Amino acid sequence: MESKFESNGTAVTEFILLGLVETAGLQPVIFVVFLFAYLLTVGGNLSILAAVFVEPKLHTPMYFFLGNLSMLDVGCISVTVPSMLGRLLSHKRTVPYGACLTQLFFFHQLAGVDCFLLTAMAYDRFLAICRPLTYSTRMNHTVQRILVATSWACAFSNALTHTVAISTLNFCGPNVINHFYCDLPQLFQLSCSSTQLNELLLFGLGVLMAGAPVILIVTSYIHVAAAVLRIQSSEGRKKAFSTCSSHLTVVGIFYGTGVFSYMRLGSVEASDKDKGIGILNTVISPMLNPLIYSLRNPDVQGALRRVLTGKRDLA
């Protein structure tokens, strides 16, 4: 590590990630637990993706978005957990400056797409339940692709903005990050230049990336709830509620942890709570999503059984 500023004003060329625990005896346990969680998450989400791909019943807009969400979940956990497992194996806790910013970019890229994709899924439920007569034209294949492409473009702009903004900060020591992956709040704490503009940028873009989608999701589900309550059949109400409740559960976990992580301007103290929220963001949420979407959905359950057993519907 260099002891004086380089030409770009940054002295720190690598960071030290403390990880989840510093006790050497617990590190093998952490490795096994997170390796299992990673394999379970990847396997679960790829199973959902395979079910959506091969099962004709699931070739609908809702499951098209769910398949995209499964790919994002695999990406989100792959950005953070494998590198953490590698450091546990090698007993090397350092990460180069460039690798840290690369991890930050891809994490915010994928999380940003998640924000907009969850909004698209809420809009899909609104059209399906509240506008059934025009649903097929308003949510055709072209519209679906445009919604996904727009989600990626907006998330890319957000992730690139944050990455460029933080690359302008000076890091002249200390270089110890009390976390298991690189993220904005922890890097703000280490900068030896003012982060006020970066924090305001994080807050402002956070309102656009999360606030606007939440308003759209809540508005959609207010209309959906009113429409569901008007359904005469109790079976129809139950089916509509089961598909919506799965999505709302995922939305609650995703946005709840996101708000805690990023909407705390002025908080400069690193905390083990941040690690807990990080685990929820990057491990627990992607791992639970396949379970949440399949638990009360007989179509997905049947498709998963056929994928896993290799049997197809004779009908």
Rank of each mutant, 00 (worst) to 15 (best):
69 L>P: 05
69 L>I: 06
70 S>K: 03
70 S>R: 05
72 L>G: 07
73 D>P: 10
75 G>Y: 02
77 I>F: 04
78 S>E: 01
78 S>D: 03
78 S>N: 11
80 T>P: 02
80 T>R: 01
80 T>L: 01
80 T>W: 02
82 P>M: 00
83 S>A: 09
84 M>E: 13
86 G>Q: 08
89 L>I: 07
90 S>C: 02
96 P>I: 00
99 A>M: 08
102 T>D: 14
102 T>A: 15
104 L>F: 04
104 L>V: 02
104 L>Y: 02
106 F>N: 08
106 F>D: 02
107 F>P: 09
109 Q>G: 04
109 Q>R: 11
111 A>I: 09
114 D>C: 14
116 F>C: 05
118 L>F: 09
119 T>Q: 12
120 A>G: 04
121 M>T: 12
123 Y>S: 11
123 Y>N: 09
124 D>P: 05
124 D>G: 01
125 R>D: 10
126 F>C: 14
128 A>S: 15
131 R>D: 12
131 R>I: 05
134 T>W: 08
136 S>D: 15
140 N>G: 13
142 T>M: 14
143 V>Q: 13
146 I>V: 12
147 L>N: 07
148 V>T: 14
149 A>T: 12
150 T>N: 13
152 W>A: 14
152 W>Q: 09
153 A>W: 01
154 C>Q: 11
157 S>F: 11
158 N>R: 15
160 L>T: 03
160 L>I: 07
